[in-house]
């Protein structure tokens, strides 16, 4: 992936020299030409086309923003309920992502989703302990985390 980005940057700078205009706009134009070239010559360059991964990162960011808005709505509801009927507790979530980056990202996403807050990671990096606002909905939130976040992170980091 890094190799492809470097090739793309070189093509962009080449484009600036060839068109003899050293501005940011021509750099962007060259970069777009570079993306097309890398896509065309993908068979000869090692690795998958890196644009696919960037699209997936973008999807992950969109998911993050959506969950942030939803979690704020749920917190607001709790703040303005006169006597909130909640039952907090800590539950364990077995992890599928193994890399340090993946776990960090997952803990971030969990902290900013409705009703959950990551509290600790076990010593062997295989279990994440999560504080939930409402422990009755644990099964639902575990399934949600597994289905949406962990899958997205595995797709990005792989």
């Amino acid at each position: 992936m890094a190799f492809q980005i470097i090739i793309n940057l070189i093509i962009a700078i080449m484009w600036m020299f060839l068109s003899e205009s050293y501005t940011f706009a021509s750099f962007i134009a060259g970069y777009i030409w570079g993306i097309l070239l890398v896509l065309l010559l993908n068979r000869f360059i090692p690795g998958r086309f890196y644009g696919i991964r960037i699209v997936k990162i973008f999807k992950l960011i969109l998911l993050f923003v959506k969950e942030l808005l939803l979690s704020n709505l749920s917190i607001l509801k709790l703040v303005y309920t006169p006597k909130p009927e909640i039952e907090p507790g800590i539950f364990a979530l077995p992890l599928e992502v193994k890399s340090n980056w993946g776990i960090t990202l997952l803990a971030h996403l969990i902290s900013l989703t409705p009703g959950t807050l990551s509290v600790a990671v076990s010593d062997k990096n295989d279990v994440l302990y999560i504080h939930a606002m409402d422990i009755d909905e644990v099964d639902k939130s575990v399934k949600e985390i597994k289905d949406s976040f962990e899958k997205a992170i595995l797709e990005v980091t792989r």
Partner: peptide, 24 residues
């Protein structure tokens, strides 16, 4: 609302919920 939540919620963990999500 985050500030009100920090005062209203019962223990430190639920208060952290309000402090992180809403203030972000």
């Amino acid at each position: 609302s985050a500030s009100i939540g920090i005062i209203r919620f019962p223990d430190i963990y639920t208060r952290l919920h309000a402090a992180t999500k809403a203030s972000t």
